[in-house]
């Protein structure tokens, strides 16, 4: 899978929804549990800047392609957040700057130490750490895309479905970037494979876990990924990640679900 960064940058747009009739939600509102899941997704999208931050303190950002990608990606994700906030707004749920801010404040000390840990780790490990970020990003983007796909299947709606499809389409481009980068870097270095395997098998969790409240994570994962269709997405994600060099045999999403007690270990 070739990935051309200049094409990606040239095609990068803030997602639009001006042509969609969001007023459809007034006569045909979304059910409570879907709104709760959307709220989670919205917060996670707005939190992208925190992931960006973690990458910027390591050698990752000094790579020209990665730096260009980060610029475009951060803006696209920000607009995913705005799009979902627009849907929530029609339902009387406001996600304003100040609330996002309050959420980030709650992360507290962990948040303060994270950049320090990341920076130390990243600079000690050096270039191979970029492979961890790229693989981690690939898994995150895949879990986000899987989440949107599941929501599209679970909640058909004339305004929601096209919007989620637009978002999912951009997530697919993100997957392509991260996967291409991860593959290249993992192929090139045994040390990168070992560190990445260790980091992903030990610490990876579905996107949003670690930032959002535990009960919200459980709600969203149960809502989206329980049942045969949901578990099929989980298996698919695991298989795709396990195709990366050095990550054979891993099942990071299933393990994360088992750790949360959502499926039997």
């Amino acid at each position: 899978m070739a990935f051309d960064i200049d094409t990606f940058a040239g095609d990068s747009v803030a997602i639009g929804w001006g042509d969609l009739d969001l007023d459809a939600f007034r006569t045909d509102p979304l059910p409570e549990r879907t709104l709760r899941t959307l709220r989670y997704m919205c917060d996670v999208e707005f939190h992208t800047v925190c992931y960006l931050r973690d990458m910027l303190v390591t050698p990752s950002h000094t790579d020209g392609d990665v730096s260009t990608f980060m610029t475009m990606w951060n803006r696209e994700e920000y607009w995913h957040g705005e799009a979902l906030a627009a849907v929530l707004r029609v339902h009387g749920i406001t996600v304003e700057f100040d609330q996002v801010k309050a959420n980030r404040m709650k992360v507290g000390w962990k948040d303060r130490l994270d950049p320090i840990k990341q920076s130390l780790l990243g600079n000690i490990v050096g270039k191979d750490f970029i492979a961890v970020h790229m693989s981690w990003g690939a898994a995150n983007e895949r879990s986000a895309a899987a989440g949107y796909r599941r929501l599209i299947a679970l909640e058909p709606h004339p305004a929601l479905t096209p919007l989620l499809k637009r978002i999912a389409q951009q997530e697919t481009r993100h997957i392509a970037f991260y996967t291409t980068q991860a593959r290249k870097r993992l192929e090139a270095s045994g040390r990168a494979r070992a560190i990445t395997r260790f980091a992903l098998s030990r610490f990876w969790g579905p996107v949003g876990s670690g930032v959002m409240p535990e009960e919200e994570v459980d709600h969203v994962m149960t809502h989206l990924f329980s049942g045969e269709d949901g578990l099929r997405e989980v298996r698919k994600l695991d298989e795709q990640i396990a195709q990366l060099p050095g990550l054979e045999g891993l099942a990071i999403m299933r393990d994360a679900f088992a750790r949360r007690g959502l499926i039997p270990a």
Binding site: V49, K101, R104
Partner: peptide
């Protein structure tokens, strides 16, 4: 990105108004 790497490790990254602006700014 070099400047953002300095700014986002500080409480500035918690200011959602500023980070929203910076996403358009960097672009």
């Amino acid at each position: 990105t070099a400047w953002l790497s300095l700014v986002l490790v500080t409480p500035t990254h918690k200011n959602a108004r500023i980070t929203a602006f910076l996403s358009g700014w960097a672009y």
